[in-house]
Design a protein around this nucleic acid. Structure first.
Lengths: 234, 234
DNA sequence: TCAAATAGCGTAGGGGTTGAACAGTTTCTC
DNA sequence: GAGAAACTGTTCAACCCCTACGCTATTTGA
């Protein structure tokens, strides 16, 4: 029956196929996943390949298929394991939401390649669901319905992902300010000619570089305020 | 000097290399980009490859490199072109924001593969910038600072992307409700055993399936409310 | 007219995922 | 204990993809 389940579901929950006969496996799914995470940490998401992991163990690529049904399956496992468990949240939904978003942003800061993992299908792996669970428990103190709490959770999650993604891009860009200048030199005339007054003003005033951390607080406050309006209305 | 610019920047703004001598090009960048979009529409993002586009024109893969410096460059062009121009927005920042998010969600609904396009670096292509421009102009009526307006824009953009992405996943899943049942059968016992009370309740009550459109309105209202709190405070 | 610039091709190499057939090893069963 | 079954990892083999180099043919400017 497990054959019909989405890739990675069974393995993510620790359901190993009961192996009876045959040679003992030289490797384990845990080892393989851990190596995948190592590669991701060292060289980004696209560095995670069955080939490289197999080479690391001095084994053929195809040997991987004894442990994992497909690369997709591996990715699901790597993603869940690399995300890890959520932290304990403080009391009060607002403090909890703040801590939750900060923790998630931090995780993405430590492992930016997690943002590159293509998400297919609903979250069904242990750690991902644990993140959802703890935030939903925090919302349980409010009069929000289950459905609304889920909506608010998605809102916070989306914001955290979006911010982390942005922070990564800007962080990467700051390494090459020379290029940024050249881009500006190329872009501004065309923005003027193409009638983009707001963006011209944004590019011309160098105002746009004052603290990425403030942007996190800014967006988080907006999002929480929006939720609070709903909670107070109930 | 153009050599130092990010891939796709020059071409996206219509700066073609002045070609003088030599055989006339059999193709044009526009044709190539249009074909790329066709493939994306028909078979998703990963179906966009230089090989397939070249084959479509009865040409070798390498011929593509006369028009485009790399695949990344092509992707940037395809993304901007496929996104297209934003609509005219109604007066009033709140109505404008609503229309803007709806329009963006609709675009992503028409071309879901746009969500798969990896975004490297700041938005620098004409259409993407135009979307930002029109929303920033709508915020210009408010007392928001440039910086805060940009923060709100990012908030709306993040929400639209996030929602569109979610809608796509759920839409795809709804095609195979059989699998969803199997997943539930597998998952619920483990959620109970693993102490996920909120998620168990969510899975058990079939409440979670009442209208995806409502979720859009829900999240949008929260987000706009959060922005409104800020605007009214100013 | 002729040389420079350029388009497209052939060849080649580097990654990557996946499948099928096969030898070897372990363990269950008769 | 012997044989059958199951399992691991290997080799061989397709098949995708992007990219670089060198070549020929073509067009155009000098």
């Amino acid at each position: 029956m497990n054959a019909e389940l989405p890739p990675g579901l069974a393995l993510a929950w620790g359901v190993q196929p009961a192996q009876r006969r045959g040679p003992k496996p030289g490797l384990s799914v845990e080892q393989i996943v851990a190596t995948g995470i190592e590669f991701g940490d060292r060289a980004g998401f696209e560095a995670i390949s069955l080939q490289k992991i197999a080479a690391q163990f001095g084994v053929t690529t195809n040997a991987m298929y004894r442990y994992v049904r497909s690369k997709d399956e591996l990715i699901v496992l790597v993603h869940d394991k690399a995300l890890g468990a959520p932290p304990e949240l403080p009391a009060g939904w607002r403090a909890a939401g703040t801590a939750w978003v900060h923790a998630l942003v931090d995780r993405y800061g430590e492992r930016p390649w997690l943002l590159d993992v293509p998400i297919r299908g609903a979250p069904i792996t242990p750690n991902v669901m644990r993140w959802a669970e703890v935030m939903l428990q925090a919302f349980a103190e409010t009069p929000l319905s289950q459905h609304d709490a889920l909506g608010c959770l998605m809102l916070l999650d989306g914001f955290a992902r979006n911010y982390a993604n942005l922070a990564r891009q800007l962080g990467a860009n700051n390494d090459v300010p020379v290029q940024a200048e050249q881009v500006g030199a190329f872009l501004v005339p065309r923005l003027i000619e193409g009638n983009y007054p707001m963006l011209v003003s944004l590019y011309t005033n160098a105002e746009y570089n004052d603290g990425l951390d403030d942007d996190l607080e800014f967006g988080l406050t907006r999002t929480l305020d929006g939720i609070e309006v709903l909670i107070k209305a109930a």
